[in-house]
Amino acid sequence: MSPAVPTLDLESRLLGASPLVIGLDEVGRGALAGPVAVGAAAVDAGVAATPLPEGLRDSKLVSEKRRPDLAERTADWVRAGSVGWATPGEVDEIGILGALGLAGTRALLRLAEAGVDVPAGVVLLDGDRDYVSRPARDEFGALDVRPVVKGDRDAASISAASIAAKVARDAVMVDLHEQFAPYGWDRNKGYASAAHRQAIAEHGLTPHHRASWAIAPAAGLFGRRPVGS
């Protein structure tokens, strides 16, 4: 069975009453190391009247080799796009949902800096939990945020956000690999592969690991100086 193709059906319905729709999706939520990223993709009636970029899918359904080209074409298609970030330290300090809220707010702020009237739009958030309304309130006031289960698969604006965030975060992890090669971040992107866990057991944690997570034996967490510290 071929992968599900997202559509603009939901966005088109919402654009009947709103001037724009902003899709949000996160990447890196379950990783052991590296930042979390939230992509944002704004579409309006003009965008909705044009064909979707060929091959647009949830980033998990697109091969790593094809994602960068798709991300470029998708960036040209949307009205505006951005990626917001939260650091491993912020994950440790306020938890993963709090960090996702910060990253999502930062992505929306970047859209605003690009001239997007964020409060005028409807925000579609992949998943079943709204992690962005509360942290974004101080910046934008009350937003119309609507979680969409499997939105990265079904809603084109969220798929576009997913692709942008995935390509941007993968690039960060590949760059970090040059300094922290034993952990294999060029391959696992900070996720919990067997090789990554073995490297943690052998070398301890780096400053880019989420130290509050139970991700290594006690000797790795407490018995050794973190790599790169």
Rank of each mutant, 00 (worst) to 15 (best):
L14M: 09
A49N: 02
R129M: 02
G141S: 08
A17R: 15
S133C: 02
A161Y: 02
R153E: 15
S82L: 13
D170E: 01
A195V: 03
L108F: 12
A195S: 13
P182S: 14
D152M: 06
A86V: 12
F180Y: 15
R169W: 04
P3K: 10
S193C: 08
G55D: 07
R66Y: 01
M173Q: 01
G39Y: 01
S59Y: 02
A165T: 04
V148K: 13
H177P: 12
A49H: 06
E54G: 05
K65M: 05
A199M: 08
D170Y: 00
A161C: 10
V123W: 01
I215R: 09
W213R: 07
P53D: 01
D9Q: 13
A194C: 01
V145K: 07
F222D: 11
S212Y: 02
V43M: 11
G115L: 06
G34M: 02
K60N: 06
D117K: 10
D138T: 00
A37L: 05
W185K: 07
A136H: 02
A4Q: 15
G81W: 13
S157N: 08
V43K: 08
P51T: 09
G220F: 06
R153A: 15
L32T: 01
I22L: 12
A75S: 15
G204W: 06
H203K: 01
R153G: 07
Q198Y: 01
V43D: 10
A142H: 03
G95K: 10
S157T: 12
A31L: 02
P68E: 13
R73E: 09
G55C: 10
T87I: 10
P35K: 12
G34I: 05
T206Q: 14
I215D: 09
V36T: 08
A40W: 05
W213P: 08
A41S: 14
T206M: 09
S2T: 14
T74M: 07
A80V: 11
M173R: 05
A17Y: 01
G89V: 12
D138I: 00
V36K: 03
S59V: 02
V27E: 09
S63Q: 05
Y191M: 05
V62D: 04
G121S: 06
G151N: 10
R106E: 02
T74I: 14
G16R: 14
S82R: 11
S18Y: 14
G127W: 03
R169T: 04
P135N: 08
G101S: 11
D76K: 12
G190P: 07
S82F: 13
L20M: 09
G28L: 02
T87S: 15
P19N: 03
L24E: 11
E113T: 06
A171V: 00
P217C: 01
L10N: 00
D58M: 05
Y183C: 11
R224L: 07
G228T: 07
P19E: 10
S162R: 00
